[in-house]
């Protein structure tokens, strides 16, 4: 029985190694991090993340400034400042029908929201005009944040043909086709 289990494990590992790879590359844009993700493929569904992600409002900043969350993820917004904060987004990826206000709440309290629609969510506070943050809701769990130099690696993407999109604050998104067959590379140069 245990031999059979080992054989099955080896076979599974081998299958993953043979049918999945990494997408690496570089995003050239302004200062700060960019986000790169694999677009959805028709018919594919993914389980929702179990644990909620957190955005803290501290020192009049959304921290982290950019949060990446796969579709279906729940994000809890914590207010750690001594003043009340509001959280709202005027649109998701430009779709104003998806605007939403979470209301206003005091220090120490949190409010949650589940993001089912993929897109870029610009976070704002109607009290403090200088507050600004983003949630990038990706359609698949295959995503990566770049380092400050712009390099990224999306690990364990099943072999196949995809569209990969890169986003950077204040720049236009760019998508390009990528074929994963063990490994793939995609470089992006974003324009304002």
């Amino acid at each position: 029985m245990s031999t059979l289990r080992i054989i099955l494990m080896l076979a599974t590992t081998g299958a993953i190694a043979a049918h999945a790879g990494d997408i690496t590359g570089k995003v050239t844009a302004g200062k700060g991090i960019s986000v790169v993700w694999v677009e959805a493929v028709a018919g594919q569904t993914f389980p929702k993340p179990d644990k909620p992600l957190t955005i803290d409002q501290r020192s009049l900043l959304f921290q982290p400034h950019i949060l990446v969350a796969p579709a279906g993820a729940t994000v809890q917004f914590l207010n750690s400042d001594n003043v009340q904060h509001n959280v709202f987004w005027p649109a998701i990826s430009g779709n104003k029908k998806l605007m939403h206000s979470m209301g206003t709440w005091p220090k120490g309290q949190t409010r949650k929201f589940t993001f089912d629609t993929p897109g870029v969510v610009p976070l704002l506070c109607n009290v403090h005009p200088e507050m600004s943050g983003y949630i990038v809701v990706t359609p698949t769990p295959y995503y990566a944040e770049t380092d400050q130099a712009g390099t990224f690696k999306i690990a364990n993407v099943p072999d196949g043909s995809y569209r990969v999109t890169a986003w950077h604050e204040g720049y236009k998104n760019q998508s390009k086709p990528v074929t994963v067959s063990g490994a793939a590379r995609a470089d992006f140069t974003l324009a304002k």
């Binding site: 005027p90 704002l124 600004s132």
Partner: peptide, 16 residues
């Protein structure tokens, strides 16, 4: 001046 923000997504950005 009360509408000035660095985020173009904020309402009244152009007024700012």
């Amino acid at each position: 001046g009360a509408a000035v923000t660095g985020n173009p997504e904020r309402p009244y950005y152009s007024l700012g």
